[in-house]
Design a protein around this nucleic acid. Sequence first.
DNA 1: TATAATATTGAATGAACGTTCAATTTATGA
DNA 2: TCATAAATTGAACGTTCATTCAATATTATA
Lengths: 200, 200
Amino acid sequence: MTNRISNERKKKIIEGFYELSVQNGLENTSIAKIGKHLGMPPSLVMHYFPTREILISNLILHILDQYLRIYEPVIKELETKNYADPQTFVDSLFSRDWNLLFDDGVFYSCYSLIFRNDRIKREYRLLHDKLRESLKDILDRDEKLEGKDTELLAEQIFVVVEGAYYYLSMIDDEEIYDRKIEAYKSQVYDLLRKYEVQHL
Amino acid sequence: MTNRISNERKKKIIEGFYELSVQNGLENTSIAKIGKHLGMPPSLVMHYFPTREILISNLILHILDQYLRIYEPVIKELETKNYADPQTFVDSLFSRDWNLLFDDGVFYSCYSLIFRNDRIKREYRLLHDKLRESLKDILDRDEKLEGKDTELLAEQIFVVVEGAYYYLSMIDDEEIYDRKIEAYKSQVYDLLRKYEVQHL
DNA sequence: TATAATATTGAATGAACGTTCAATTTATGA
DNA sequence: TCATAAATTGAACGTTCATTCAATATTATA
């Protein structure tokens, strides 16, 4: 392959960028630092990513990709089993596991860029809409929700999930954290129940 | 007063910092730029805020202060009238007005700092807890909610509000924006209704 | 009014920034 | 194997950064 080396390098650079951003923050991670971290001159970094803006843009694609990947196994499992259990999906949304796989600091740093960069805004929007659609698909397979506005329900569930993690990021105390996450989870269950009951 | 000039200067500097951050982003606003913006040498900025870190810390206090001030009139009104109408408060939470008074870009930029700065995290936490307490106070005055877990209700309402604005920041289309905000509002109304009904 | 404290200036610092470029090494395809 | 293209190097660019400092102007206090 002509561009095998190129692709590998690009991947390594973005990963290095991500790692350093987790440690020191996005705004404190320079091209020179990335180069040093990977044992290459900054000019090589710029050979693959001509400007810092492009570099950041690719970092964001990487992050959004990782984010989507977190949901993948759950979505796949539900698809192969061909059995849709919304509760399982909701549980996985609130599971601690994937919180460890992902650094919210970098995610929110990049998120804050949407306010002055329309392309980043569009990419972020796309990710969130994809996640909502995935949930809608799962909800649509639940017979108890037949004929219901599952799009709206999915939206409402994610609003709770996203508001929950926004606030949870400020909580250090594990006990409080766990208590709150249970409260949020039951808030989502209530939503599900409300929709199920409605057609009686 | 000995430090009248000092206080005025400090205020002006923070306000200038905020204004430039709205325009160009927090990470692109340097001490030199703040000085130029206000017609003073950078050394004067540093005379009042010895390091950039202190400057940012004060910017955050300023932002949190502004944030709280948005809710103040509503809270005051409800207190003086001594009549608690949760719905009015919820409406004001979703009113477009205060969205114009406040720049979410700077707010989220500062928010992203909580992940690597414990003091900032604590300050952000404090703000959010204050807001939750304010809502709880209002809910407690509603006889229909007597004996209910209003603390939990307030928490659940804010989770929706915060999740809502997180997602709404990605929406440019006014029509979609308005439609979504109505959906989120009724989601909160449902929460209120659920709690009211429960004791029947 | 004299003195001490504070506010303000402007020049200077070295470090780090993103970026450019010409030269060199390595890999690829004919 | 040879030519061409891609990968890699290292030095250099001008700019901006946060910060320091000594000197001067202004204000407050006694």
